[in-house]
Design a protein around this nucleic acid. Structure first.
Lengths: 233, 233
DNA sequence: GTCTATAACGAGATAGAC
DNA sequence: GTCTATCTCGTTATAGAC
């Protein structure tokens, strides 16, 4: 009985991931907007109604792909971070950013799914939030470490930003000065701005040695977050 | 005869822009991937074959929409810049960035068309390049002015970036130090990273007072380009 | 209980004959 | 330029196999 349940569960997992794999293939070929349950089913030799045992709707399949993509990116970033756990905060920052860029270059269509234009008619549910936060939390951890060990350079924020800064810091890192949270959120957006520009073609005819350009740029962004203090490698 | 030709030309322009307007409406509703010449024609009470007299293919219609969007954004940015021609470079920088953000918030689907995920199966032709460069050139002009009047703060670039920096600077601004061109290109991507994150939902549940946050962030990016020298408003 | 298959709905796109 | 026959789609109801 437990073996029967185990076999069923195993089969279910296998079919589920076969569906997602095929859906990812279609994502790459035709874009998220044209992702079709019927086409996925056809390619797998199933009937479309059978898919509803695994995903209650097309949007739920999309949601699963989005969460998978965020998790895959998060794992790549975390693995890269673990590999350089012993170096200074700026080097770890750059390593995580480079891992994010590398992941994006390897899986451009999944990158477009999570950081590109929204899919028309689709609204991501709250269940995507934890996976979506992984990279941000990792970067926040680096900044927190830097703050605890050697301190981070803080730029004073203007009075008009004070309420938002305090609110944002209370949500993200109540233990750190609000200036740091603000700088981090901005830096996070800026890093992905660089990745998006490269991936979506904005750097065509402009930047050629993109890896070097990226490394330098995110390193400067890291400086901007205060990761480097006078005399801090 | 010249009046007849004039009337013909006028009618052609009118129909052309009616087609683009309807196409933009569909863009907003269903996304660029599903833009269909037939649907546009149907909505205009035309027959699909008639559209081919105005746009030889769906891709050409897309290209026209892209160029229009870049031009509209460029014009918004240039207008905003002209309105603050007499203030310091950092304030002008912020004004242009805010104009870009404002345009993006007003026309999110056109923003997605030009700065979002690529449309599957579509390759933008070289004819889009001039329009696409307008905002970048405007920002470059601000940096150039700042450099000529009070100088800009330069951060030294690492040796590994030197070849790319020189190549990039030769293309973009041979009259300025290569460090400045590199900083500008990175800043350009970072500014649009902020806009994209806000527009595509990445700031949901994170940043609330987005206008203030944006103004502060792009001002800091402007600092990073060296727009503010010790004692330069 | 868990799954797959058949059939159908309403809506929309598409290809081709006329 | 028009019409029609034939496709696609997401989704549901239902019936039956394991």
């Amino acid at each position: 009985m437990s073996t029967a349940q185990g076999a069923r569960a195993r089969a279910r997992i296998e079919v589920t991931s076969a569906i997602k794999d095929e859906a990812r293939r279609q994502l790459a070929a035709d874009g998220a907007a044209k992702l079709s349950l019927r086409a996925v089913a056809r390619e797998l030799g199933m009937v479309s109604s059978a898919l509803y045992r695994y995903f209650p709707s097309r949007d739920d399949l999309l949601t699963a792909l989005i969460i998978d993509a965020y998790d895959s990116l998060g794992e790549a970033a975390e693995t890269a971070h673990a590999a350089v756990a012993d170096v200074g905060p700026l080097r770890r920052w750059v390593a995580v950013c480079e891992a994010a860029r590398g992941w994006a270059l390897r899986r451009p269509h999944e990158y477009a799914l999570i950081y590109g234009s929204p899919v028309p008619g689709y609204q991501a549910p709250d269940t995507t939030v934890p996976a979506a936060s992984r990279v941000g939390l990792l970067l926040m951890g680096i900044v927190r470490d830097a703050h605890r060990s050697v301190g981070v350079a803080r730029t004073p924020i203007p009075a008009e930003l004070r309420p938002e800064a305090d609110r944002l810091a209370a949500d993200l890192a109540p233990d750190l000065p609000a200036e740091v949270s603000v700088a981090l959120v901005a830096a996070w957006a800026q890093v992905f701005g660089l990745i998006g520009f490269e991936l979506f073609g904005q750097f065509n005819r402009v930047v050629e040695d993109r890896e070097t350009f990226f490394r330098y740029s995110v390193s400067r962004i890291g400086h901007g977050v205060g990761l480097v203090f006078p005399g801090n490698p």
